[in-house]
C-alpha cells in the first residue's frame, strides 16, 4: 500500500474509533462529575467524586438486581446449552419417528416474530402463577431454538466412527454426548453460551412485563425503571451512573472473551 492512503486509513480509523469510544468515556467521566459540570465536551474535572454512585445505591437495590441478573442469565445459559445439545444430538445423530417434522417445526418457529406470542406468553405466566417469580424469567428462555440448530449443525460433522466405537463400549446416548461430543464441541458450546447469556442479560421487554417486585428485577429492567419511573428525579448524572453500573459487568466479560463474543455474534448472522 502506498504511504498516503495508509495515513488516510489511520486517520479515518482513529476518527471512527473516537466516534465509538468517546461517548463511553464521556459517560464514564460524567458519572464522577457533579451535575453542573456535565455540559462540557472535555472529560476532566477537579471535582470527581463517587456521589452519583452513592445516590444510585441508596435509591435502588441495584446489587440485588445484579445478583438476579447473574442468576437468571446463568440458569438460562446453562439450560440452553444442555437442552440445545441434547436436542441437537437427537436431531443430528438419532433416527426416530417425527425427526424431520421436529426439524421443520424448529425452522418454522424461527420465522415467527415474537410480537405474536408476547401477549399470550404473558397471560400464560399469569395463569401459571409465575408472574413475579424467577420462573417467569428463566423457563421461557430455557430452550433456544437457535442453539439447537447450532448444535445440530456442529454434531453433523462429527464422524460416525466415534459413536460406533462408543456404542461397542456400551455407552448410552447421553454418555456419548457428554463424554465424547462435548470435549470436541468447545466452540459451539461457547457460542451458544454467549448468545444465550447476552440475550438474557440484555433483555428488558420481557422482565418489564412479568416482574413487578423490586426484589426480583433484573439489572437492565431496574435501570430502565430508575430512568423512566421518576426515581432518578431527573438527576442526569445518577442516571448515567446507573447506566454505567449496568454496562460494567458485561464489558468486563467482553474484555476477557472479546474474540469469542465477536465470533459468536458473527455466527448468529452467518448461520441464519
Amino acid at each position: 500500500m502506498e504511504k498516503k492512503s495508509r495515513i488516510w486509513v489511520y486517520i479515518t480509523m482513529t476518527f471512527g474509533g473516537l466516534i465509538f469510544a468517546y461517548p463511553f468515556l464521556w459517560m464514564l467521566s460524567a458519572t464522577f462529575k457533579p451535575e453542573m459540570e456535565i455540559a462540557e465536551i472535555g472529560l476532566m474535572s477537579a471535582n470527581f467524586s463517587l456521589d452519583n454512585y452513592r445516590v444510585v445505591f441508596n435509591k435502588i437495590p441495584i446489587g440485588r438486581a445484579l445478583l438476579n441478573s447473574i442468576f437468571v442469565s446463568s440458569c438460562v445459559t446453562f439450560s440452553a446449552v444442555m437442552f440445545g445439545s441434547i436436542v441437537g444430538y437427537a436431531l443430528s445423530r438419532l433416527r426416530f419417528w417425527g425427526r424431520e417434522l421436529i426439524l421443520g417445526i424448529i425452522l418454522f418457529t424461527m420465522v415467527i416474530p415474537f410480537q405474536i406470542t408476547l401477549i399470550p406468553m404473558y397471560i400464560l405466566m399469569v395463569k401459571f402463577g409465575w408472574v413475579d417469580t424467577y420462573l417467569s424469567l428463566i423457563v421461557p428462555g430455557m430452550i433456544s431454538t437457535f442453539g439447537i440448530l447450532l448444535f445440530r449443525q456442529f454434531f453433523l460433522d462429527i464422524p460416525q466412527d466415534l459413536i460406533d466405537a462408543a456404542r461397542i463400549d456400551g455407552c448410552s446416548d447421553l454418555a456419548i454426548l457428554f463424554r465424547i461430543f462435548f470435549p470436541l464441541s468447545k466452540p459451539v458450546i461457547i457460542t451458544v453460551g454467549i448468545l444465550s447469556f447476552m440475550g438474557s442479560w440484555n433483555d428488558v421487554l420481557w422482565p418489564l412485563i412479568v416482574v413487578r417486585v423490586r426484589e426480583l428485577m433484573t439489572m437492565p429492567q431496574m435501570v430502565t425503571l430508575f430512568k423512566v419511573g421518576g426515581q432518578a428525579e431527573s438527576q442526569i448524572s445518577s442516571q448515567l451512573a446507573a447506566a454505567a453500573l449496568l454496562a460494567i459487568p458485561i464489558v468486563i466479560v467482553y474484555a476477557f472473551f472479546q474474540r469469542y463474543f465477536i465470533e459468536s455474534m458473527a455466527t448468529t448472522g452467518l448461520k441464519n
Partner: peptide, 24 residues
C-alpha cells in the same frame, strides 16, 4: 483493537446506549 472497539456498543445493553444518547 479497532474491531473490538467498534463491537463494544453491540454487547452493551440498549438501555445503557439509550440513556447515554439521550444526554448526547
Amino acid at each position: 483493537f479497532f474491531r473490538a472497539l467498534f463491537f463494544l456498543p453491540v454487547i452493551v445493553s440498549g438501555v445503557v446506549i439509550t440513556i447515554l444518547w439521550e444526554q448526547l
